[in-house]
């Protein structure tokens, strides 16, 4: 009897997933009754709440892609570099201080990062912009950079865990053959931990794609089919957030667009999360 109650609590997580899917699918189907899938996926104009609505989701996808690439450009090198240093170079005492400090970054609320992007990073970007006209206060680059900082602990912690799990015997063998520290790190430890590192990158992409508050605050609100990160853009998440604040009446097309874009976002992140879990399972080097 008690075991059954406990089982139901565990099963609630599956119910949550089912509920998420059930909440997304019906309005999305209704949406595609009004707007063709072709127009949605290939249209280049997104203005669903205007008098003359257009439903091409590509500008939102472009915004998401640009901010994500900016974030990766920050979090991949910095996260991986920090992880290699902490795992291969740092003395235990240094590590005990630096690792929690790095993980503090993960505990900071995303609105705070949004404020930082808009009030601190954006003015810096405007000042040092090297290509002609400086960007406006709202731009994808500032949002992306700060998003990257936010994701550094995700990449750093997961890759470091993977590297620490590489058995000492492999390192000692390489040292015995005359390798230097750098060679051990880059040719033995990183390749041996590659599955964990790859999984951390995939998870980083998923987090960047799903991040809402930073882009909502700092990336500007205009859907914009562009690849220049200096421009203002809107991501999928920022659209959902902005439309949600607007309190769309149930059943209106504006209300349904939230779910259509939400489905796209959910599918994208869901696939990446599964992929990351898979990578770890499939390609893990198993040591004793």
């Amino acid at each position: 009897m008690i075991v059954w109650v406990l089982f139901l609590c565990a099963a609630l997580s599956v119910v949550t997933t089912v509920a998420i899917v059930l909440s997304l699918v019906p309005p999305t189907i209704e949406f595609f009754g009004e707007v063709s899938i072709g127009e949605f996926l290939t249209g280049t104009k997104w203005s669903p709440l205007f008098a003359n609505p257009r439903f091409g989701v590509l500008p939102l996808v472009a915004g998401t892609a640009v901010t994500t690439v900016c974030a990766l450009a920050v979090c991949v090198p910095i996260g991986l570099g920090s992880a290699v240093y902490l795992s291969e170079y740092a003395r235990p005492r240094t590590r005990r201080v630096l690792k929690p400090l790095l993980e503090l970054l993960a505990g900071i609320p995303t609105v705070v990062y949004g404020y930082f992007a808009l009030e601190v990073v954006s003015p810096i970007v405007q000042t040092i912009w090297p290509f002609g006209d400086p960007p406006g206060a709202f731009n994808a680059l500032s949002a992306g950079i700060v998003m990257g900082v936010m994701i550094v602990p995700t990449v750093g912690s997961l890759s470091e865990d993977a590297m620490t799990a590489v058995p000492a015997g492999l390192r000692e063998g390489a040292y015995a053959l005359g390798s230097t520290r750098r060679e051990v790190a880059t040719r033995v430890v990183v390749p041996a931990a590659l599955s964990g590192i790859a999984a951390s990158f995939v998870l980083a992409i998923s987090r960047a794609v799903g991040e809402t508050m930073i882009v909502l605050i700092a990336a500007g609100g205009q859907p914009n089919l562009a690849i220049n990160p200096g421009e203002a853009m809107q991501t999928m998440t920022a659209f959902i957030g902005a439309a949600g604040i607007g309190d769309q009446p149930t059943g209106s097309t504006g209300y349904k667009t939230i779910f259509a874009v939400g489905s796209l976002l959910f599918v994208a992140t869901f696939v990446m999360n599964l992929l990351s879990i898979r990578i770890v399972r499939r390609f893990r080097e198993v040591y004793e």
Binding site: S13, T16, T17, S23, R207, I240, G244, I258, T269, F270
Partner: peptide, 24 residues
């Protein structure tokens, strides 16, 4: 299934939970 599902839910973007909240 429950285990994989929990791992996966942990990485679902928070705004998606917002959509769930709005709809249900």
């Amino acid at each position: 299934l429950i285990e994989v599902n929990i791992q996966n839910l942990a990485a679902v973007p928070s705004i998606v939970y917002g959509i769930l909240g709005l709809a249900f």
